[in-house]
């Protein structure tokens, strides 16, 4: 790497995660190499149990690898202490989960400002940032609602706003539309498209081809390893004509 601009935001080498031992040994993640550049959206697809969620947890420091390295902006996170890791998770990474994981007793805006407060921002700055983010996800008028009063799609948009609270280097999303109906999926999809447009680095683990199709790069995973990797950008609407019978 010649300079900082070329350095991947997220880098993994020989990443492994194993459970059990002997005959019961499960290689959930089995030697993954990955470089995610700044501003890139990367989707990881694969059948249930292929290890994609486990990999995402290793990348975000939610879980420790059995072997291999993970670096964020050039800094190793696989071998740092618990406290440093917790701080890193709070400030450098944003997580979005399938089941939203919002605090049910906090309002939407309180959920969004929480990570900023935990990272030591002033209440006033945290509130201002949360207001901006709720506007960005189109939920200004729901700021004082509890999660239970919001639809699934709205809850996930609050969760995305929360993930962005500390301007993370990378947002890691684990099946972000797994619990959503088709209309709510479209909302989240548009939100990811706009994040992508604003240069946010995103890694999305998903079953949903519509979400995967927003990515620049698609990785297919099977049995804990990458089996296929491809760029999705660069198609043309001309090819779509054939799908509706416009080309003879």
């Amino acid at each position: 790497m010649s300079n900082a601009a070329d350095m991947p935001v997220l880098r993994a080498r020989g990443l492994r995660k194993e459970y059990g031992k002997g005959l019961g040994l499960v290689r959930a993640v089995d030697g993954v190499d990955l470089d995610i550049g700044a501003g890139e959206t990367v989707a990881v697809m694969g059948p249930s149990g292929c290890g994609k969620s486990t990999m995402l947890h290793l990348l975000g420091g939610l879980d420790r690898p059995s072997g291999g390295e993970v670096s964020l902006n050039g800094r190793r996170i696989d071998d740092i202490g618990e406290r440093a890791l917790a701080r890193m998770r709070r400030t450098v990474v944003g997580f979005v989960f399938q089941a939203f994981h919002l605090m049910e007793e906090l309002t939407a805006i309180e959920n969004v400002e929480l990570p900023a407060l935990l990272a030591g921002r002033s209440p006033r700055a945290a509130r201002r940032r949360a207001e901006e983010l709720l506007e960005q996800v189109g939920l200004t008028d729901r700021a004082r609602f509890l999660p239970s009063a919001l639809s699934g799609g709205q809850r996930q948009r609050v969760a995305v706003a929360r993930a962005l609270s500390n301007e993370p280097l990378v947002v890691l999303a684990d099946e972000p539309t797994g619990n959503l109906d088709s209309a709510a999926t479209l909302d989240v999809l548009q939100l990811f498209e706009s994040l992508h447009g604003s240069g946010q680095t995103l890694v999305i683990v998903t079953h949903d081809p519509r979400i995967a199709a927003t990515a620049d790069r698609l990785i297919s995973m099977r049995d804990g390893a990458f089996v296929d990797e491809t760029r999705l950008s660069g198609g043309t609407t001309g090819q779509l004509g054939a799908l509706v019978g416009l080309e003879d």
Binding site: A213, A215, L218, D228, L232, T237, L240
Partner: peptide, 20 residues
């Protein structure tokens, strides 16, 4: 299957963008 999926996802990406 992987190759075919790649191609269909490219088209899906184009169609979604155009629809939006």
């Amino acid at each position: 299957v992987d190759t075919q999926r790649r191609e269909l996802l490219r088209r899906l990406r184009d169609a979604q963008r155009a629809a939006m």
